[in-house]
């Protein structure tokens, strides 16, 4: 098992060193760091969804209150 793992790690490091010095191994840095833009857009989307969730909770409370007053 140990030797198997070691071979695996050796193969991995060989693969990384075999890639061109101008193609980074880090996922976020691939293809001109375009995934950073994806991350920024995701954060903004999460922010807007959080806003919607908080707003919905307050509207639900208002609905309950107005139903209570109607009855």
């Amino acid at each position: 098992m140990g030797t198997f793992l070691l071979t695996g790690i050796r193969a991995m490091t060989w693969l990384i060193s075999a890639t061109s010095p101008h193609e980074p191994a880090d996922f976020m840095r691939q293809t001109g760091k375009i995934y950073v833009v994806y991350g920024v857009l995701s954060l903004i989307f999460i922010g807007i969804v959080t806003f919607l969730i908080l707003l919905e909770r307050r509207i639900s409370k208002l609905e309950k209150k107005s139903d209570h007053e109607q009855s």
Binding site: M28, R29, K33, V36, G39, V40, L43, I44, G47, F51
Partner: peptide, 18 residues
């Protein structure tokens, strides 16, 4: 404030890779 918080978070992510 929500926009400012998002500005900080997105800026932080951008800074991490530049």
């Amino acid at each position: 404030m929500l926009f400012g918080l998002l500005g900080c978070l997105t800026g932080s992510l951008w800074a991490r890779y530049t």
